[in-house]
Design a protein around this nucleic acid. Structure first.
Lengths: 335, 335
DNA sequence: AAGTATTTTGGCAGCGCTGCCAATCGAGTT
DNA sequence: AACTCGATTGGCAGCGCTGCCAAAATACTT
């Protein structure tokens, strides 16, 4: 390709159209005043030369102290769990509509990587930053404060936020799940989960679950926690281990629907009837679980909506606040 | 936050450390020569002032004609299908390692949106662009050529590419799937798929499948195609309709594993034994399908690897070429 | 000690665009 | 016809950083 030829610049368009650079710039941004004829001439020149504006220069020149570029930085912990693509979908959808572009970083649930990513994203002078969860390194917070930009923390509302917070209470999710199981008469309840040291939200759900269970007088009988990320395979294997150890459970709470689906397959393979021999309860409201012969009992979370609201609030401006979007318990047929 | 105060600039660091701007710049980029003592002093000043480099300015100043910014633009058709998060995971992982940041756009399988996104991404003067598939608007191609940057087209190798192409032959996937089913003795074969008008790769797989089937003398008996995106729910409903209409099929080929999983649930709900009453064959090699009591027979695609190779080639430079990463047929227990 | 490499350093002109402000143009006023 | 006022337009100084090149400091020779 033409690595040799200089790219077309605003000055070229100005020369070609016969107007000044400022005028062309105004027309291109549809800002300030100019006549219809001018706009047409400029459009013509742009088309003829194949001009593509250079936003690097634009953002640098524009008020660099305040919201510089039309970029929004997004840091998510993972892409392996469907939750995050869903959040991204909501974010990019709403962001596109408001003319923003998304720069994305994946932290692998590592606070240090999150910090590095925040620093890297900040160097593009984004208009705002979107993070996941409320827990960050002190240095990350310092960077954020110094940058003086809007920040959204998604998913978790169980604690104080830096600026905007959009999500729901993971603790309340755990409590609601426990209440449901107890109300249905289950007493010998176990837990199958993935790495709570890394996925802090899963930890908060479990804490809420256990607390609610204690409150009713029944405790958690046994638990099986895997170190790996959540997956159906991990869920199936973990439930197998749990049942080998403690066969007389009557219900199992899973850290999420991926794990629960693995649990479902485990029961199918053992020929155990659900929910009579064993009840299953998940978390997330994955599409797949609705297609199961027996729909999974789970908690449906407003993932897409969280992304959308986060993006909209970021674009709209407004006071710092915490927005709790709640969740819905889906009774299903497995618990 | 401090929207009022000017952000710290390189000049501030220079003043604070007592060196010139060029020296500080060199130290910060670890390029050119400077003494250890200088580096320490600069690091000190950076830490003291909390300096965050402005990459907008950096990229603008750096050779703007060639690879300007350290950004790579990525356009994917969707985030709803797990394939794309997997590709993204490979891309962002490898890109991070080479110091690039990813700007992402989602086209919703719409070539016009793809074009708009390419134009928008190009305005950040990315070092390269990553697209999905080989089919683009003529204007999109023109934009790409004029930009003079590296382009990678992912997933599909069935046709000529613009520059780098990383993927596998979707047509060959279809052919291999058909060959497997025929070899196993299935003769009355149906197809359940999602929107081939939008997902062109699914169309190519189906074309390969049908061609191979014709070649053996057996044709495709019946097909059920839904207009919506693929999902387990859609797969289950579609298989139900197909079987109501043509009950005597002995095998069904699905457009992907999501659909196939829905088909599996459909059989479970009907009490049909798999693969004796009906055999199922999918595509993608989703993790979930490996956890099923009967692992799904499917094609495993190197999604992560495609993303990684794409990113690496983009970063490394090198000649235009098509890299076929192949695929693996997973025999499974459903066909 | 004088001279020649080599390493370190600083000055300054842009990169392409926008903000500011002054200049120009028309049309309406008196 | 002289004058006012709003609509258009152009000139130019940066935005913060890097590339280029010359200057300064240091090291090595003979």
């Amino acid at each position: 390709m033409n690595l040799h030829r200089r790219l077309v610049t605003l000055a070229d368009v100005a020369r070609e159209s016969g107007f000044g650079e400022s005028t062309v710039s105004r027309v291109l941004r549809n800002q300030g005043s100019f006549s219809k004829r001018t706009a047409d001439r400029v459009a013509e020149a742009v088309a003829k030369l194949g001009y593509v504006p250079n936003r690097l220069a634009g953002s640098l020149a524009g008020n660099a102290a305040s919201a510089g570029s039309q970029l929004v930085g997004i840091v998510i912990p993972s892409l392996a769990n469907i939750v995050f693509p869903d959040l991204l979908r909501g974010l990019t959808g709403a962001l596109d509509r408001t003319g923003f572009q998304s720069v994305i970083g994946v932290s692998d649930y590592d606070p240090d990587r999150e910090e590095a990513l925040v620093a890297a994203l900040l160097s593009w002078r984004p208009a705002g930053l979107v993070l996941t969860g409320l827990e960050h390194n002190p240095d990350t917070v310092a960077l954020l404060r110094a940058a003086g930009i809007r920040v959204v923390e998604m998913i978790d509302t169980d604690g104080p936020g830096l600026d905007l917070v959009v999500g729901f209470s993971n603790r309340a999710v755990g409590e609601a799940s426990a209440a449901h199981l107890v109300a249905r008469g289950y007493r010998r309840i176990g837990y199958v989960g993935h790495d709570i040291l890394r996925d802090l939200r899963a930890g908060k759900r479990l804490a809420g679950f256990e607390a609610a269970l204690q409150g009713t007088g029944y405790g958690l009988i046994d638990r099986e926690i895997v170190a790996e990320p959540s997956s159906a395979t991990a869920g199936r294997a973990a439930l197998d281990r749990l049942l080998d150890r403690t066969p007389d459970l009557d219900a199992v709470y899973f850290s999420n629907d991926d794990m629960a689906l693995g649990g479902y397959f485990c029961c199918l393979a053992r020929g155990w009837s659900i929910p009579h021999r064993l009840a299953l309860f998940g978390y997330n409201g994955l599409d797949i679980t609705a297609a199961m012969p027996q729909p999974l009992s789970t908690i449906r979370t407003p993932r897409l909506r969280i992304g959308e609201i986060a993006a909209e609030r970021l674009a709209a401006g407004g006071p710092a606040e915490t927005i709790d979007l709640g969740f819905a318990l889906v009774a299903g047929a497995t618990a």
